[in-house]
Design a protein around this nucleic acid. Structure first.
Lengths: 130, 130
DNA sequence: TTATCTGCAAACATTTTGCAGCGAG
DNA sequence: CTCGCTGCAAAATGTTTGCAGATAA
């Protein structure tokens, strides 16, 4: 099935090291500067595998990059991401889910999936900024 | 200031022709097959200008393309987009807006902007499909 | 006239893929 | 030993940019 190679291990460890969203590039750079020998393509491939297995959350940043981070909760959820430092908090809202279901039904849509991400400025960065 | 060229006119007309979300490529192809002589870069440049002026809605499709369409309502709103045919319906919901405001505040975040798009299968496409 | 716009092609950034060799199980 | 994984480099995608010539006002 799946093999645990040094590279996969390294990617996983790096993801575990900081609980924020990172791009594949950032992870690649971090590993490189730690002396790990990992190719960029390998980072992408592992992130893809991990996201297929639903071990990481994937979201798309404002300028179109994929960002990854370890899932904390296994079920569906959304994030409140700091634009500046990348800190992310999971927000739980079944209210949204039911609302989505209602809206979809009332418009005759099926198989609806929703993406919702909140990007803002966290309390800490707001303080630093001003 | 801004000049109304044949090309800008063409892009605008094409956007007006169908009220669905289109990619720059699709608009480019449509214009080309109508015999219009417009470059792809020009389409992009005009779409960018239009979105800066808030004359078009921009959203990102599931696989990372920008999609454009004329704004119908000037204020903030979301969309329910058909994955298959691209039909989009605007959905208004201040419920969401207030919810976002609450969540943001409770996490100490400021300047929060949210993106939320629903992608599904519209009634018509669902019928065709089965 | 003249600043803006256009077309083209080349540049970009991010992600994916092909392939020969490596290595975990 | 095998089949999945890796590195590299090349390809693919979608978008942007530089520049010389065209054009709206």
């Amino acid at each position: 099935m799946q093999r645990m190679t040094k590279q996969r291990q390294a990617v996983f460890t790096e993801l575990a090291r900081l609980p924020d969203f990172r791009s594949a590039q950032q992870i690649f750079d971090a590993l490189k500067s730690q002396g790990e020998k990992v190719g960029l393509a390998t980072v992408y491939r592992n992130l893809q595998t991990l996201s297929e297995d639903e071990r990481v959350d994937v979201l798309r940043s404002h300028d179109g990059e994929f960002l990854y981070r370890l899932c904390e909760t296994p079920h569906h959820h959304h994030h409140l991401v700091c634009r500046t430092c990348g800190t992310a908090e999971e927000i739980e809202q079944e209210a949204i889910e039911t609302w989505v279901a209602e809206v979809s039904a009332s418009h005759g849509f099926t198989e609806v999936e929703h993406s919702m991400e909140l990007f803002g400025l966290c309390a800490n960065c707001a303080k630093i900024k001003q």
